[in-house]
Design a protein around this nucleic acid. Structure first.
Lengths: 224, 224
DNA sequence: CTATAAATGATAGTATTACTATCAACGAAT
DNA sequence: ATTCGTTGATAGTAATACTATCATTTATAG
């Protein structure tokens, strides 16, 4: 039995949280706490109490809570890439691949037994409500230089390449890919909190509706 | 000569900043400071020093800096609605109206002499970099109940109505409208800070490119 | 089995933030 | 002349976001 783990660039942490028990506890409980409290109300102090440790110990893994958030989001996108690779490598044409990716991105997230230390459902909540905060800061350029957004950019690239495969003349492949990725999460947030901004909450199955919305958005837009 | 001013719901402030000199100074300089420092590093203390006043005085106008941000963003969207009304009421068909709206939303913002107290260019920067933070909080449901997002929702409605006018069978009019609104700002941010997520930065005129991207996105998607 | 290094815990301390409270001073309206 | 509304001045508090130091436990290598 081989153990799969998601390896992340070493700029994403001070000390690799996957390398120790404490590190794993930090990740596990930070997902729980951030999804419950929201990122603003989340503090290392609260986390340290939750895991019976100290602030100082947590600071040895992550410089600050923003870095921890960036790490979690990066883990999420690396996980998505892994799932996409797994579920699309056997597919023949780019249309099918793209369709499958859209399904994976929009579907309801359930616990993935491959990674028992991560609550993927709670992490998805964080991605929906907090991921924009990873780059909406004054540090974005430095963070980008340090490769903190590599995973997301790579996924965007991946989707853009398929789009260009389907229609080589489409000018805005990356723009459409990033728009679709952002929208797929944003619409879920709107459905729950600002329902007049979307139809998703009115339809029987919001996840399926989201899938159809995003699929339609992409395929109609790139059609030559 | 009639003076036009943008009236905002009274839940957006404690005391109307447009009613006093100090209030106007708060708005004027907060736009400057937030656009320079970013919302996280912006504090009432820094603002009070900038305008030679005190924190306590600022708190009489806004409960906290988040409320001030919400106020500024609400002002922006009310201003956009005003401009849209002005520039589209004479147009005949919904296609033309929608096209004009997309142009207004994506075009580079220049100072509007009608409102000398507001630096629209700096405010647009804030909208691009900070506006998602108005609703990405644990308070979003309460804030929404208090009508803080009325302006944005109304604009989204406005666009969705035109979309339905053009294609009454399109299921996701509001979802597409909110996606387009979000994307039009997000793409500008990406172009500047995460350029691999968009083509905008590579093209001669990024604003014009954004206009074509969003226009294409909407019109292709709704086409029956 | 011991020496040594690595990881963690315990504790303390600091500058800043995000407020709240109180009271004095000032100008404008009645 | 009084009173009201606005602002300024000052003070104070709990919490946050760290940083630093040193002791203790745990793992590992010889």
């Amino acid at each position: 039995m081989s153990v799969i783990s998601i390896q992340l660039g070493n700029n994403l942490y001070c000390k690799d949280p996957q390398s120790t028990e404490l590190g794993k506890k930090i990740v596990l409980h930070s997902i729980k706490l951030i999804s419950e409290l929201g990122f603003e109300a989340f503090t290392f102090r609260k986390l340290s109490m939750q895991i019976d440790s100290t602030e100082a110990s947590i600071y040895r893994y992550f410089d600050n809570k923003h870095r921890l958030l960036v790490y979690l989001i990066a883990w999420y996108w690396a996980w998505m890439e892994y799932k996409i690779e797994y579920e699309t490598h056997h597919l023949g044409n780019p249309q099918e691949k793209l369709d499958r990716i859209i399904r994976l991105i929009t579907e309801k997230k359930v616990p993935d037994d491959t990674f028992p230390d991560i609550d993927e459902e709670a992490l998805n909540k964080i991605v929906i409500a907090e991921s924009d905060k990873t780059y909406l800061t004054k540090r974005v350029d430095k963070d980008n230089q340090n490769g903190l957004f590599k995973g997301y950019k790579s996924l965007c690239d991946h989707i853009a390449a398929l789009i260009l495969n389907i229609n080589p003349n489409f000018t805005f492949a990356h723009a459409l890919a990033s728009t679709a990725l952002e929208a797929s999460n944003q619409q879920v947030f709107f459905a729950e909190h600002l329902p007049s901004l979307t139809e998703l909450s009115k339809l029987e199955d919001p996840y399926s509706a989201n899938y159809h919305f995003v699929k339609n958005l992409i395929f109609k837009t790139i059609d030559a």
